[in-house]
Nucleic acid binder design. Sequence first.
RNA 1: GGGCCGCUAGCUCAUCUGGUAGAGCACCGCCCUUUUAAGGCGGGCGUGGCAGGUUCGAGUCCUGCGCGGCCUACCA
Length: 426
Amino acid sequence: MAMRHHGGSSFLDIKDSSGKIQLYIKKNTMPEKELFIFNHIDIGDIIGVEGDVFRTKTGELTILVKHLTLLSKSLSPLPEKWHGLKDVEIRFRKRYLDLIMNEEASNLFSKRVKILQHIRMFLNNRGFVEVDTPMMHPIPGGAEAKPFITHHNTLDMNLYLRIAPELFLKRLLVGNFEKIYEINRSFRNEGISPLHNPEFTMLELYSAYGDCNEMMEITEALIMSLAVNINNSFTLDFQEKKIDLSQPWKKMKWEEVFAGMGISDWRDKDAVMKKAKEERVELTEEDKENVFEVLDKIFKKNIEPQLINPTFIYQYPVEISPLAKASPDNPGMVERFELFMGGLEVANAYSELNDPLEQHKRFLEAVKKHTGNKEKMVDEDYIEALEYGMPPAGGLGIGIDRLVMLLTNASSVREVIFFPLLRPKK
RNA sequence: GGGCCGCUAGCUCAUCUGGUAGAGCACCGCCCUUUUAAGGCGGGCGUGGCAGGUUCGAGUCCUGCGCGGCCUACCA
Protein backbone atom coordinates (compact mmCIF):
# COMPACT_ATOMS: atom_id res chain seq x y z
CA MET A 1 0.00 0.00 0.00
CA ALA A 2 2.95 2.33 0.42
CA MET A 3 6.66 2.39 -0.39
CA ARG A 4 9.44 4.45 1.12
CA HIS A 5 12.78 4.09 -0.63
CA HIS A 6 16.07 5.06 0.96
CA GLY A 7 18.69 4.22 -1.59
CA GLY A 8 19.96 0.83 -0.59
CA SER A 9 16.92 -0.03 1.45
CA SER A 10 13.16 0.37 1.35
CA PHE A 11 10.14 0.13 3.59
CA LEU A 12 6.86 -1.19 2.27
CA ASP A 13 3.45 -1.50 3.85
CA ILE A 14 1.47 -4.47 2.65
CA LYS A 15 -1.97 -5.62 3.67
CA ASP A 16 -4.39 -8.46 3.26
CA SER A 17 -7.64 -9.38 4.94
CA SER A 18 -5.80 -10.26 8.15
CA GLY A 19 -4.22 -6.84 8.46
CA LYS A 20 -1.20 -4.81 7.61
CA ILE A 21 2.53 -5.24 8.14
CA GLN A 22 5.68 -3.40 7.24
CA LEU A 23 8.44 -4.91 5.09
CA TYR A 24 12.06 -3.92 5.12
CA ILE A 25 14.04 -4.67 2.00
CA LYS A 26 17.80 -4.36 1.81
CA LYS A 27 19.73 -4.45 -1.42
CA ASN A 28 22.37 -6.80 -0.11
CA THR A 29 20.10 -9.36 1.52
CA MET A 30 18.09 -10.32 -1.55
CA PRO A 31 19.03 -12.31 -4.64
CA GLU A 32 19.73 -10.23 -7.76
CA LYS A 33 16.75 -11.63 -9.65
CA GLU A 34 14.27 -10.80 -6.91
CA LEU A 35 15.79 -7.37 -6.51
CA PHE A 36 15.08 -6.76 -10.17
CA ILE A 37 11.44 -7.72 -9.58
CA PHE A 38 11.33 -5.46 -6.55
CA ASN A 39 12.62 -2.52 -8.56
CA HIS A 40 9.61 -2.82 -10.83
CA ILE A 41 7.01 -3.27 -8.17
CA ASP A 42 4.06 -0.86 -8.02
CA ILE A 43 1.55 -0.09 -5.34
CA GLY A 44 -1.32 -2.49 -5.92
CA ASP A 45 0.85 -5.44 -6.91
CA ILE A 46 0.27 -8.59 -4.93
CA ILE A 47 3.48 -10.10 -3.59
CA GLY A 48 4.60 -12.93 -1.38
CA VAL A 49 7.58 -12.55 0.95
CA GLU A 50 9.76 -14.64 3.23
CA GLY A 51 12.07 -13.27 5.87
CA ASP A 52 12.85 -12.62 9.51
CA VAL A 53 10.57 -10.68 11.78
CA PHE A 54 12.12 -7.89 13.85
CA ARG A 55 11.26 -4.57 15.37
CA THR A 56 12.52 -1.29 13.98
CA LYS A 57 13.91 1.34 16.28
CA THR A 58 10.47 2.90 16.41
CA GLY A 59 9.19 -0.46 17.63
CA GLU A 60 7.20 -1.41 14.57
CA LEU A 61 6.89 -5.08 13.77
CA THR A 62 8.62 -5.56 10.43
CA ILE A 63 9.73 -8.35 8.14
CA LEU A 64 13.29 -8.23 6.85
CA VAL A 65 12.63 -9.68 3.43
CA LYS A 66 14.91 -12.42 2.13
CA HIS A 67 12.76 -13.62 -0.72
CA LEU A 68 10.09 -11.89 -2.73
CA THR A 69 7.69 -13.29 -5.28
CA LEU A 70 5.40 -11.35 -7.55
CA LEU A 71 2.02 -13.05 -7.32
CA SER A 72 -0.04 -10.60 -9.30
CA LYS A 73 0.72 -7.46 -11.27
CA SER A 74 -1.48 -4.40 -10.96
CA LEU A 75 -1.77 -2.64 -14.31
CA SER A 76 -4.13 0.14 -13.26
CA PRO A 77 -2.95 2.52 -10.55
CA LEU A 78 -4.91 2.49 -7.33
CA PRO A 79 -6.55 5.70 -6.10
CA GLU A 80 -4.48 8.03 -4.03
CA LYS A 81 -3.30 6.78 -0.64
CA TRP A 82 -4.05 9.78 1.55
CA HIS A 83 -7.43 11.07 0.45
CA GLY A 84 -8.51 7.66 -0.76
CA LEU A 85 -11.47 7.14 -3.03
CA LYS A 86 -14.25 9.64 -2.36
CA ASP A 87 -16.27 9.76 -5.54
CA VAL A 88 -19.53 8.13 -4.53
CA GLU A 89 -20.31 6.94 -8.00
CA ILE A 90 -16.96 5.16 -8.41
CA ARG A 91 -17.24 3.75 -4.89
CA PHE A 92 -20.51 2.05 -5.89
CA ARG A 93 -19.56 1.09 -9.43
CA LYS A 94 -16.11 -0.22 -8.53
CA ARG A 95 -16.78 -1.45 -5.04
CA TYR A 96 -13.54 -3.44 -5.06
CA LEU A 97 -11.63 -0.15 -5.07
CA ASP A 98 -13.77 1.17 -2.23
CA LEU A 99 -12.97 -1.96 -0.26
CA ILE A 100 -9.23 -1.69 -0.93
CA MET A 101 -8.95 2.02 -0.23
CA ASN A 102 -11.52 2.83 2.43
CA GLU A 103 -11.24 1.06 5.70
CA GLU A 104 -14.71 2.20 6.76
CA ALA A 105 -16.22 0.47 3.74
CA SER A 106 -14.25 -2.65 4.39
CA ASN A 107 -15.27 -2.65 8.07
CA LEU A 108 -18.91 -2.01 7.21
CA PHE A 109 -19.11 -5.00 4.89
CA SER A 110 -17.27 -7.20 7.39
CA LYS A 111 -19.99 -6.23 9.83
CA ARG A 112 -22.65 -7.12 7.29
CA VAL A 113 -21.09 -10.55 6.91
CA LYS A 114 -20.99 -10.96 10.69
CA ILE A 115 -24.60 -9.85 11.05
CA LEU A 116 -25.73 -12.50 8.58
CA GLN A 117 -23.60 -15.15 10.27
CA HIS A 118 -24.99 -14.16 13.63
CA ILE A 119 -28.62 -14.23 12.51
CA ARG A 120 -28.14 -17.74 11.16
CA MET A 121 -26.45 -18.88 14.33
CA PHE A 122 -29.15 -17.31 16.48
CA LEU A 123 -31.95 -18.97 14.54
CA ASN A 124 -30.19 -22.32 14.22
CA ASN A 125 -29.71 -22.34 17.99
CA ARG A 126 -33.43 -21.85 18.40
CA GLY A 127 -34.18 -24.86 16.25
CA PHE A 128 -34.90 -23.13 12.97
CA VAL A 129 -33.57 -24.56 9.73
CA GLU A 130 -32.57 -22.56 6.70
CA VAL A 131 -34.43 -23.36 3.50
CA ASP A 132 -34.38 -21.94 0.02
CA THR A 133 -37.46 -21.49 -2.09
CA PRO A 134 -37.95 -20.33 -5.66
CA MET A 135 -37.03 -16.85 -6.74
CA MET A 136 -38.87 -17.26 -10.02
CA HIS A 137 -42.58 -17.35 -9.38
CA PRO A 138 -45.37 -18.17 -11.81
CA ILE A 139 -47.58 -15.76 -9.85
CA PRO A 140 -46.12 -12.91 -7.81
CA GLY A 141 -47.39 -12.89 -4.24
CA GLY A 142 -46.72 -12.36 -0.57
CA ALA A 143 -46.57 -8.58 -0.78
CA GLU A 144 -48.00 -5.57 -2.53
CA ALA A 145 -45.37 -4.61 -5.10
CA LYS A 146 -44.67 -4.53 -8.79
CA PRO A 147 -42.66 -7.52 -9.92
CA PHE A 148 -39.93 -7.92 -12.49
CA ILE A 149 -41.08 -10.08 -15.37
CA THR A 150 -38.95 -12.60 -17.17
CA HIS A 151 -39.59 -15.42 -19.58
CA HIS A 152 -38.71 -19.09 -19.73
CA ASN A 153 -38.12 -20.07 -23.35
CA THR A 154 -38.61 -23.82 -23.28
CA LEU A 155 -41.74 -23.70 -21.17
CA ASP A 156 -42.76 -20.55 -23.03
CA MET A 157 -44.08 -18.95 -19.90
CA ASN A 158 -43.65 -15.69 -18.07
CA LEU A 159 -42.12 -15.83 -14.64
CA TYR A 160 -41.85 -13.17 -11.98
CA LEU A 161 -38.86 -12.51 -9.79
CA ARG A 162 -40.25 -12.96 -6.34
CA ILE A 163 -41.45 -9.96 -4.41
CA ALA A 164 -41.50 -12.06 -1.21
CA PRO A 165 -40.83 -15.70 -0.32
CA GLU A 166 -43.83 -15.89 1.99
CA LEU A 167 -46.23 -18.10 0.08
CA PHE A 168 -43.61 -20.75 -0.68
CA LEU A 169 -42.33 -20.81 2.88
CA LYS A 170 -45.86 -21.41 4.10
CA ARG A 171 -46.23 -24.28 1.65
CA LEU A 172 -43.30 -25.77 3.57
CA LEU A 173 -45.26 -25.33 6.80
CA VAL A 174 -47.96 -27.43 5.18
CA GLY A 175 -45.23 -29.97 4.42
CA ASN A 176 -44.30 -30.21 8.10
CA PHE A 177 -41.15 -28.09 8.02
CA GLU A 178 -42.16 -26.43 11.23
CA LYS A 179 -39.44 -23.94 12.08
CA ILE A 180 -37.90 -22.48 8.98
CA TYR A 181 -36.24 -19.37 7.71
CA GLU A 182 -34.90 -18.02 4.48
CA ILE A 183 -32.40 -15.21 4.07
CA ASN A 184 -32.22 -14.17 0.49
CA ARG A 185 -33.11 -11.71 -2.19
CA SER A 186 -36.49 -10.35 -3.15
CA PHE A 187 -37.06 -8.03 -6.07
CA ARG A 188 -39.42 -5.11 -6.44
CA ASN A 189 -39.78 -3.17 -9.61
CA GLU A 190 -40.24 0.21 -8.00
CA GLY A 191 -38.43 3.42 -7.24
CA ILE A 192 -34.85 3.60 -6.05
CA SER A 193 -34.09 5.67 -2.99
CA PRO A 194 -31.77 5.74 0.01
CA LEU A 195 -34.09 3.15 1.53
CA HIS A 196 -34.90 1.09 -1.56
CA ASN A 197 -32.79 -1.03 -3.87
CA PRO A 198 -34.61 -3.07 -6.53
CA GLU A 199 -33.12 -6.25 -5.11
CA PHE A 200 -32.85 -6.46 -1.37
CA THR A 201 -32.21 -9.08 1.26
CA MET A 202 -34.97 -10.23 3.52
CA LEU A 203 -35.17 -12.62 6.39
CA GLU A 204 -38.45 -14.44 6.65
CA LEU A 205 -39.06 -16.99 9.33
CA TYR A 206 -42.03 -19.15 10.27
CA SER A 207 -42.71 -21.03 13.44
CA ALA A 208 -45.50 -23.60 13.41
CA TYR A 209 -47.70 -23.54 16.50
CA GLY A 210 -46.31 -20.09 17.26
CA ASP A 211 -47.99 -16.75 16.78
CA CYS A 212 -47.52 -13.03 16.53
CA ASN A 213 -46.42 -12.79 20.17
CA GLU A 214 -43.69 -15.35 19.70
CA MET A 215 -42.48 -13.35 16.71
CA MET A 216 -42.30 -10.26 18.86
CA GLU A 217 -40.18 -12.05 21.38
CA ILE A 218 -37.85 -13.41 18.68
CA THR A 219 -37.52 -10.02 16.99
CA GLU A 220 -36.55 -8.32 20.20
CA ALA A 221 -34.14 -11.07 21.25
CA LEU A 222 -32.52 -11.21 17.82
CA ILE A 223 -31.92 -7.49 17.56
CA MET A 224 -30.63 -7.25 21.12
CA SER A 225 -28.32 -10.13 20.46
CA LEU A 226 -27.04 -8.46 17.30
CA ALA A 227 -26.50 -5.15 19.07
CA VAL A 228 -24.39 -6.85 21.72
CA ASN A 229 -22.46 -9.09 19.39
CA ILE A 230 -21.83 -6.61 16.61
CA ASN A 231 -21.53 -3.30 18.45
CA ASN A 232 -21.22 -4.42 22.05
CA SER A 233 -23.72 -1.79 23.10
CA PHE A 234 -27.38 -1.31 23.96
CA THR A 235 -27.51 1.97 22.14
CA LEU A 236 -27.12 2.65 18.45
CA ASP A 237 -25.79 5.85 16.96
CA PHE A 238 -27.79 6.30 13.84
CA GLN A 239 -27.67 9.42 11.70
CA GLU A 240 -27.51 12.00 14.49
CA LYS A 241 -29.99 9.98 16.52
CA LYS A 242 -29.41 7.82 19.52
CA ILE A 243 -31.43 4.63 19.57
CA ASP A 244 -31.94 3.27 23.04
CA LEU A 245 -32.48 -0.48 22.95
CA SER A 246 -33.18 -0.95 26.64
CA GLN A 247 -36.08 -3.25 27.26
CA PRO A 248 -38.97 -3.49 27.39
CA TRP A 249 -39.60 -2.00 23.99
CA LYS A 250 -42.52 0.31 23.50
CA LYS A 251 -45.76 -1.19 22.20
CA MET A 252 -48.64 0.70 20.78
CA LYS A 253 -51.81 -0.36 19.01
CA TRP A 254 -52.13 0.83 15.47
CA GLU A 255 -55.39 2.57 16.24
CA GLU A 256 -53.91 4.21 19.34
CA VAL A 257 -51.40 5.93 17.10
CA PHE A 258 -54.22 7.64 15.27
CA ALA A 259 -56.25 8.20 18.40
CA GLY A 260 -53.18 10.02 19.72
CA MET A 261 -53.43 12.35 16.76
CA GLY A 262 -57.06 13.14 17.40
CA ILE A 263 -58.59 10.56 15.07
CA SER A 264 -60.85 8.82 17.54
CA ASP A 265 -62.42 6.60 14.88
CA TRP A 266 -60.16 5.75 11.98
CA ARG A 267 -63.14 4.37 10.06
CA ASP A 268 -64.52 7.89 9.96
CA LYS A 269 -63.28 8.89 6.55
CA ASP A 270 -64.19 12.54 6.92
CA ALA A 271 -62.21 12.86 10.13
CA VAL A 272 -59.24 11.12 8.53
CA MET A 273 -59.37 13.34 5.48
CA LYS A 274 -59.59 16.41 7.66
CA LYS A 275 -56.54 15.34 9.61
CA ALA A 276 -54.63 14.65 6.40
CA LYS A 277 -55.40 18.14 5.22
CA GLU A 278 -54.36 19.66 8.54
CA GLU A 279 -51.06 17.83 8.46
CA ARG A 280 -50.51 18.77 4.83
CA VAL A 281 -50.25 15.18 3.72
CA GLU A 282 -50.18 15.12 -0.05
CA LEU A 283 -52.67 12.73 -1.54
CA THR A 284 -53.41 11.54 -5.04
CA GLU A 285 -56.96 11.17 -6.26
CA GLU A 286 -56.53 7.44 -5.92
CA ASP A 287 -55.43 7.72 -2.29
CA LYS A 288 -58.57 9.64 -1.45
CA GLU A 289 -60.69 6.66 -2.49
CA ASN A 290 -59.13 4.50 0.16
CA VAL A 291 -59.11 5.49 3.81
CA PHE A 292 -56.24 3.09 4.49
CA GLU A 293 -54.04 4.83 1.96
CA VAL A 294 -54.70 8.11 3.67
CA LEU A 295 -54.01 6.66 7.10
CA ASP A 296 -50.82 5.09 5.81
CA LYS A 297 -49.64 8.39 4.35
CA ILE A 298 -50.35 10.19 7.60
CA PHE A 299 -48.42 7.50 9.44
CA LYS A 300 -45.45 7.65 7.09
CA LYS A 301 -45.24 11.40 7.19
CA ASN A 302 -45.95 12.16 10.83
CA ILE A 303 -45.34 9.07 12.92
CA GLU A 304 -42.70 6.88 11.36
CA PRO A 305 -39.86 9.45 11.42
CA GLN A 306 -40.41 9.93 15.14
CA LEU A 307 -40.20 6.30 16.10
CA ILE A 308 -36.51 6.37 17.07
CA ASN A 309 -36.39 3.92 19.94
CA PRO A 310 -37.71 0.49 18.99
CA THR A 311 -41.48 0.55 18.90
CA PHE A 312 -43.89 -2.22 18.07
CA ILE A 313 -47.04 -1.01 16.40
CA TYR A 314 -49.57 -3.82 16.61
CA GLN A 315 -53.08 -4.93 15.79
CA TYR A 316 -53.66 -3.77 12.23
CA PRO A 317 -56.90 -3.69 10.23
CA VAL A 318 -57.57 -6.79 8.19
CA GLU A 319 -57.95 -4.72 5.04
CA ILE A 320 -54.23 -3.98 4.89
CA SER A 321 -53.11 -7.40 6.14
CA PRO A 322 -54.39 -9.96 3.63
CA LEU A 323 -52.23 -12.83 4.88
CA ALA A 324 -52.68 -12.32 8.62
CA LYS A 325 -55.04 -14.09 10.95
CA ALA A 326 -57.92 -12.15 12.42
CA SER A 327 -57.83 -11.43 16.08
CA PRO A 328 -60.50 -13.48 17.89
CA ASP A 329 -61.15 -10.64 20.34
CA ASN A 330 -61.08 -7.71 17.96
CA PRO A 331 -63.27 -8.11 14.94
CA GLY A 332 -61.84 -6.49 11.83
CA MET A 333 -58.33 -6.47 13.25
CA VAL A 334 -55.49 -8.96 12.80
CA GLU A 335 -52.72 -10.25 15.01
CA ARG A 336 -49.89 -8.38 13.44
CA PHE A 337 -47.11 -5.97 14.34
CA GLU A 338 -44.52 -3.86 12.64
CA LEU A 339 -41.31 -2.79 14.33
CA PHE A 340 -39.91 0.69 13.81
CA MET A 341 -36.60 2.10 14.95
CA GLY A 342 -34.43 5.00 13.88
CA GLY A 343 -37.42 6.19 11.87
CA LEU A 344 -37.29 3.07 9.70
CA GLU A 345 -39.60 0.11 9.36
CA VAL A 346 -37.51 -2.95 10.15
CA ALA A 347 -39.89 -5.82 10.76
CA ASN A 348 -43.37 -7.01 9.90
CA ALA A 349 -44.93 -10.06 11.52
CA TYR A 350 -48.21 -11.76 12.13
CA SER A 351 -50.09 -14.84 13.10
CA GLU A 352 -50.48 -16.54 9.75
CA LEU A 353 -53.87 -16.94 8.20
CA ASN A 354 -54.27 -20.69 7.65
CA ASP A 355 -57.93 -20.87 6.70
CA PRO A 356 -58.08 -21.60 2.95
CA LEU A 357 -61.64 -20.34 2.55
CA GLU A 358 -60.94 -17.07 4.32
CA GLN A 359 -57.68 -16.68 2.40
CA HIS A 360 -59.41 -17.28 -0.90
CA LYS A 361 -62.00 -14.67 -0.06
CA ARG A 362 -59.33 -12.12 0.78
CA PHE A 363 -57.41 -12.82 -2.41
CA LEU A 364 -60.55 -12.26 -4.44
CA GLU A 365 -61.21 -8.99 -2.67
CA ALA A 366 -57.68 -7.85 -3.38
CA VAL A 367 -58.03 -8.68 -7.06
CA LYS A 368 -61.32 -6.80 -7.18
CA LYS A 369 -59.63 -3.73 -5.71
CA HIS A 370 -56.89 -3.91 -8.28
CA THR A 371 -59.06 -3.99 -11.35
CA GLY A 372 -56.63 -1.69 -13.12
CA ASN A 373 -53.74 -3.96 -12.29
CA LYS A 374 -53.43 -6.86 -14.71
CA GLU A 375 -50.62 -8.43 -12.68
CA LYS A 376 -52.87 -9.19 -9.76
CA MET A 377 -53.77 -12.87 -9.77
CA VAL A 378 -55.12 -15.33 -7.25
CA ASP A 379 -52.58 -17.97 -6.34
CA GLU A 380 -54.95 -20.95 -6.43
CA ASP A 381 -52.06 -23.33 -5.94
CA TYR A 382 -51.35 -21.72 -2.58
CA ILE A 383 -54.99 -21.97 -1.58
CA GLU A 384 -54.89 -25.64 -2.49
CA ALA A 385 -51.87 -26.13 -0.23
CA LEU A 386 -53.79 -24.54 2.63
CA GLU A 387 -56.65 -26.94 1.98
CA TYR A 388 -54.42 -29.82 3.06
CA GLY A 389 -53.95 -28.07 6.38
CA MET A 390 -51.34 -25.56 7.49
CA PRO A 391 -50.54 -25.51 11.19
CA PRO A 392 -51.20 -22.26 13.00
CA ALA A 393 -47.96 -20.32 12.83
CA GLY A 394 -46.19 -17.07 13.49
CA GLY A 395 -44.30 -15.45 10.65
CA LEU A 396 -41.75 -12.65 10.63
CA GLY A 397 -40.01 -10.63 7.97
CA ILE A 398 -36.99 -8.42 8.58
CA GLY A 399 -35.38 -6.21 5.99
CA ILE A 400 -31.74 -7.13 6.36
CA ASP A 401 -30.32 -4.17 4.48
CA ARG A 402 -32.09 -1.69 6.72
CA LEU A 403 -31.08 -3.65 9.78
CA VAL A 404 -27.46 -3.46 8.61
CA MET A 405 -27.89 0.28 8.07
CA LEU A 406 -29.03 0.67 11.67
CA LEU A 407 -26.21 -1.44 13.05
CA THR A 408 -23.51 0.28 10.99
CA ASN A 409 -24.88 3.82 11.01
CA ALA A 410 -25.12 3.88 7.22
CA SER A 411 -26.95 6.75 5.55
CA SER A 412 -28.16 4.77 2.56
CA VAL A 413 -29.05 1.24 1.62
CA ARG A 414 -26.46 1.58 -1.15
CA GLU A 415 -23.76 1.83 1.47
CA VAL A 416 -24.60 -1.62 2.79
CA ILE A 417 -25.12 -3.48 -0.49
CA PHE A 418 -21.89 -4.54 -2.22
CA PHE A 419 -23.14 -3.71 -5.69
CA PRO A 420 -26.24 -1.49 -5.64
CA LEU A 421 -28.10 -1.17 -8.91
CA LEU A 422 -26.88 1.78 -10.98
CA ARG A 423 -27.64 2.82 -14.48
CA PRO A 424 -24.85 1.50 -16.71
CA LYS A 425 -22.36 4.12 -17.69
CA LYS A 426 -21.99 4.58 -21.43
C1' G B 1 -41.41 13.01 -12.64
C1' G B 2 -39.69 17.96 -10.18
C1' G B 3 -35.85 21.04 -7.54
C1' C B 4 -30.79 21.85 -6.06
C1' C B 5 -25.68 20.31 -6.51
C1' G B 6 -21.60 17.74 -8.90
C1' C B 7 -18.72 15.82 -13.32
C1' U B 8 -11.16 19.10 -14.89
C1' A B 9 -4.76 13.90 -15.11
C1' G B 10 -5.36 7.01 -12.53
C1' C B 11 -7.03 9.42 -7.49
C1' U B 12 -7.87 14.08 -4.24
C1' C B 13 -8.57 18.90 -5.73
C1' A B 14 -7.27 24.15 -7.83
C1' U B 15 -7.92 27.41 -12.04
C1' C B 16 -11.28 35.00 -9.21
C1' U B 17 -15.03 39.12 -13.52
C1' G B 18 -13.98 34.40 -20.56
C1' G B 19 -7.49 35.05 -22.57
C1' U B 20 -2.68 28.92 -24.57
C1' A B 21 -5.16 23.90 -18.12
C1' G B 22 -1.83 22.96 -12.64
C1' A B 23 -0.77 21.12 -7.64
C1' G B 24 -0.31 16.89 -4.30
C1' C B 25 -0.49 11.58 -4.37
C1' A B 26 0.44 7.63 -7.90
C1' C B 27 3.88 6.76 -12.17
C1' C B 28 9.15 7.28 -14.82
C1' G B 29 14.60 8.81 -14.08
C1' C B 30 18.60 10.28 -10.58
C1' C B 31 20.38 10.82 -5.08
C1' C B 32 19.78 8.70 -0.23
C1' U B 33 20.61 1.55 3.99
C1' U B 34 15.45 2.39 10.16
C1' U B 35 11.24 5.07 7.10
C1' U B 36 5.98 5.38 7.99
C1' A B 37 1.39 11.15 4.31
C1' A B 38 9.96 9.97 4.37
C1' G B 39 12.85 13.72 1.70
C1' G B 40 15.63 16.25 -2.55
C1' C B 41 16.23 17.13 -8.02
C1' G B 42 14.02 16.31 -12.92
C1' G B 43 9.69 14.51 -16.06
C1' G B 44 2.63 16.39 -17.18
C1' C B 45 0.77 11.52 -18.73
C1' G B 46 -5.60 15.93 -20.35
C1' U B 47 -11.32 14.74 -25.70
C1' G B 48 -12.18 19.75 -18.84
C1' G B 49 -18.94 14.12 -18.94
C1' C B 50 -21.21 14.56 -24.21
C1' A B 51 -23.41 17.73 -28.15
C1' G B 52 -24.58 22.38 -29.81
C1' G B 53 -24.67 27.91 -29.23
C1' U B 54 -22.69 33.02 -27.99
C1' U B 55 -17.67 35.13 -28.64
C1' C B 56 -11.78 37.22 -31.93
C1' G B 57 -11.31 33.56 -27.96
C1' A B 58 -15.22 28.92 -23.61
C1' G B 59 -13.14 24.41 -18.38
C1' U B 60 -15.48 29.31 -17.31
C1' C B 61 -21.49 32.22 -20.19
C1' C B 62 -26.25 29.92 -22.63
C1' U B 63 -29.24 25.50 -24.36
C1' G B 64 -29.95 20.34 -24.72
C1' C B 65 -28.44 15.50 -23.29
C1' G B 66 -25.84 11.73 -20.10
C1' C B 67 -24.28 9.80 -15.32
C1' G B 68 -24.30 10.47 -10.10
C1' G B 69 -25.62 12.66 -5.15
C1' C B 70 -29.19 15.03 -1.85
C1' C B 71 -34.22 16.56 -1.31
C1' U B 72 -39.09 15.86 -3.06
C1' A B 73 -42.97 13.31 -5.60
C1' C B 74 -44.83 8.74 -7.54
C1' C B 75 -45.44 3.56 -6.79
C1' A B 76 -46.53 0.29 -2.82
